[in-house]
Amino acid sequence: MADGPVTETYGLDTGRVIAVLNDVVATEVVCWLRYTRHAISATGIDRAQVAAEFTEHAAEEMQHALRAAERLSQLGGEPDFDPATLARRAHTDYTTRRLIESILEEEEEHADDLTDLLAV
């Protein structure tokens, strides 16, 4: 328990996992900014519905960033919220993979929602 999440059996390069998580943080922050911008600049008769959808997605993106930042902090890293630090992707451990898979699931849901809005 005193070792926290990084025990002898962890088996991965913690520095590499932290780097991947920082990439996730940067990506999610950029997505949050984009969705927020789209919510603010939505126009037309369906503006309220479109803005609400973008606002919902923006909130989920920020939660993704915060979840990834919390995990990398647990692993002893420092969250880097500068989107300019986005680097190449790497494979992650099981817990981090589940986190990223859950984020991907929500991203796919966002794409479906936007496709539905555009089809109207």
Rank of each mutant, 00 (worst) to 15 (best):
N22V: 01
L99F: 06
E56M: 08
E105I: 00
A52T: 12
D82H: 06
T36M: 10
A26Y: 01
Y10E: 04
G76V: 04
Q63R: 14
L114A: 10
R88N: 11
E106R: 10
S41G: 05
T95D: 15
I100T: 06
T43S: 14
R88L: 06
A52G: 14
E61W: 01
E28F: 03
D93A: 07
E53R: 12
L117W: 07
G44M: 10
T14H: 03
L72V: 05
A84W: 04
D23S: 15
E108G: 01
E105Y: 05
Q74F: 07
M1N: 11
R37M: 10
V25E: 03
R98N: 13
E109S: 13
A84Y: 03
E108Q: 10
E28I: 04
V30M: 14
E107T: 07
L21G: 05
E28Y: 00
A19P: 04
E53K: 11
E109H: 09
D23Y: 07
G44S: 09
T115Q: 10
G77E: 09
R16E: 15
G77Q: 06
L21I: 06
L104Q: 10
D13A: 09
I18H: 00
T115S: 12
L118T: 11
Y10L: 00
R16T: 13
H110N: 12
A26Q: 06
E106P: 04
A87T: 12
E108Y: 11
Q49L: 13
T7K: 14
A90N: 10
T92K: 07
H38V: 03
E105A: 12
D93R: 08
E53M: 12
H91Y: 07
E56C: 01
L86Y: 10
E28R: 01
S102E: 15
A39I: 02
A90V: 00
R89E: 12
G77M: 04
R37E: 15
A51L: 08
D82P: 02
V20K: 07
A58W: 05
A42S: 15
H110L: 09
G76P: 01
R34P: 02
R16L: 12
D13K: 08
N22M: 06
Y35T: 06
R67S: 13
P83R: 09
R98K: 15
A84L: 04
V24F: 03
A59V: 09
H64K: 08
P79K: 08
D13Q: 09
V25W: 01
E53P: 00
D116G: 14
F54I: 03
Y35W: 10
P79R: 06
R89Y: 07
D116C: 04
A90D: 13
A111D: 09
T27S: 14
V6E: 13
A90W: 09
A26P: 00
A51G: 11
T92R: 09
H110Q: 09
A69H: 01
A90Y: 11
Y94Q: 15
I40M: 11
V30A: 14
A84I: 00
E78T: 15
R16S: 13
E101G: 05
A90C: 07
E56S: 13
G11S: 02
R88Q: 13
R67H: 11
